[in-house]
Each structure stands twice: as structure tokens, then as C-alpha cells.
Amino acid sequence: MIFAGIGSRKGVSEQQVLSAISAALAEYRLDLSSLGGLATASLKRDETAIHSAARQLGLPLIIVDDTDLARAGTETPSRSELSLTLTGVASVSEAAALAAAGEGARLLGPRLLLDSVTCALAISGEVE
């Protein structure tokens, strides 16, 4: 199962979020059917565009609690000083994707930044 972790500046649009997800999927030659859901940090729980994007895609949105985000945040290769200051993790999108994908999850690669939205893809540790 693959999860898309989403981070963003406040006030981005649904289309910006959808475009970042599409770009991340294209980067790894995946299609939308590969995604099991979207994930973001509790700090972003009220970000309308992220909720709207999840509804548009017909996917669940997982709001990762701060403890799980911090735990997963130790595994992120990217670093944003703003993210670190606001959330305590260096990459919200990477940490959220890892936390949502569960134990043994791994990132497919570093987050992708597109138009004020970051998207990272993580695959669960379960072997198919």
C-alpha cells in the first residue's frame, strides 16, 4: 500500500495539491490506483485543500498525530527549517507518508515540491 504524504503552505488550492500528487506519482511511474490514501500532520487538519483533494480522489485522509509524526520524522531525508520550527519534523510530507504507511514503511524517494505543496510517497513494509 502506498500513501501520499502532503505538506503545504497555508491557503493552497485543491488543484495545487492534486498537481503535486500527480507529479509525485509520475516521478515513480505510478498511477492513482496505486494510492491507498493521503496523510498529513495534525497542524494541517484544517487545510481545506488537502481534504478536498482526498475527496476528489476518493481516498481517505489520515491526520497523523504529533507523536507518530515525530517518530517517523527521524527517517526523513529532506529538511525544511520552517517545517522543523512549526512541527518539530524536518519534512511533514515525508514523515506523514511514513507514519500512514506503518511499521517498516519506506519512502520511494525524497519529497517533491511543486507550487507550495510537498508530496512524498511511502510504501508499507508489508510484502505483497
Rank of each mutant, 00 (worst) to 15 (best):
L59Y: 01
A53Q: 01
L61A: 02
G7A: 01
I2W: 03
G58H: 03
I62N: 00
A23T: 10
S33E: 13
R79N: 07
L108H: 03
T76Y: 09
G73A: 04
A95M: 09
V12W: 05
A101N: 10
S13K: 09
S42G: 12
A53C: 04
S52V: 10
T76H: 00
A72M: 01
T85M: 14
I63W: 08
L30A: 09
H51S: 12
L82F: 14
S42K: 02
E75Y: 14
D115W: 08
A100G: 04
G88Y: 10
G104R: 15
R111M: 12
E128L: 15
Q15M: 08
L18G: 10
A90G: 04
E14C: 13
A101E: 07
D66T: 13
D68C: 10
G125R: 04
L69F: 01
G104I: 14
L38A: 07
A90M: 05
L43D: 13
A20R: 02
L86Y: 12
P110D: 08
I50F: 02
E103R: 04
V89Y: 06
E126I: 15
Q16R: 07
V64F: 00
V92F: 03
D115C: 12
T48W: 02
S34T: 11
V127H: 13
K10W: 06
L57A: 01
A54H: 09
A99W: 06
L112C: 07
S22R: 02
R79G: 03
L35M: 08
V12D: 01
R29M: 01
I21N: 03
R106Y: 12
K44D: 00
G102L: 08
I50C: 06
A4T: 05
G104A: 14
G5I: 02
L25D: 06
